[in-house]
């Protein structure tokens, strides 16, 4: 089986989940499972008016591609796409999308999970909070739980 090329995009515009699924499945009959993960902006109990996502252009795409290529080597995927937005994002809006497809569900589930775990700890994006109160918000702190989530893939 020839390996697929992951579709990686860094953009300020929103994405359409259904359209992204269709891009991976249209015109092919070898896919039995598609898993999508969508990350959204929360309002943290009404305290947040927006998140500002800063990124490192160039490296952001390169790093997500490195993670995605590893997923492609690890699981028998028929398609893999990741879209990460940057700029100002309001509560309820999309931030990130991962779509993984495979002949069977397990590979698609695991690849999507793997990609998200490493995207959180290795992709060069930083979130700053804009508060509903109008006061200046803080940069979001990295979570140890995210490091632990990425670490567990190394033990397999």
């Amino acid at each position: 089986m020839s390996r697929i090329t992951p579709d990686i995009r860094i953009q300020s515009a929103d994405f359409d989940v259904a359209a992204e699924i269709a891009k991976l499945t249209d015109g092919r009959s070898d896919t039995g499972a598609v898993v999508t993960f969508t990350g959204l902006c929360r309002d943290e109990g009404g305290t947040l008016s927006a998140l500002e996502l800063e990124h490192y252009p160039g490296m952001a795409e390169a790093e997500i591609r490195r993670i995605a290529e590893e997923a492609v080597q690890r699981w028998p995927l028929t398609g893999l796409a990741a879209i990460h937005r940057h700029g100002r994002i309001a509560p309820g809006e999309n931030i990130v999308l991962v779509v993984a497809s495979s002949a069977h569900r397990q590979a698609a589930f695991e690849a999507a999970n793997f990609l998200m775990d490493f995207l959180k700890t290795r992709a060069p994006f930083w979130k700053k909070e804009h508060l509903a109160s109008g006061e200046e918000g803080q940069w979001v702190d990295a979570k140890e739980a995210d490091d632990d989530a990425a670490e567990r893939w190394k033990q397999r």
Binding site: G58, I95, K120, F125, W139
Partner: peptide, 29 residues
């Protein structure tokens, strides 16, 4: 990041490095 790749080895050489970036732990996703 040196030339847009994570590096944590303090002994890593800077030869050929044209771009170095400095940042706190990432919080994307």
């Amino acid at each position: 990041a040196l030339n847009q790749e994570h590096v944590d080895d303090l002994a890593a050489s800077l030869e050929g490095v044209t771009e170095a970036a400095f940042f706190p732990p990432m919080t994307g996703g």
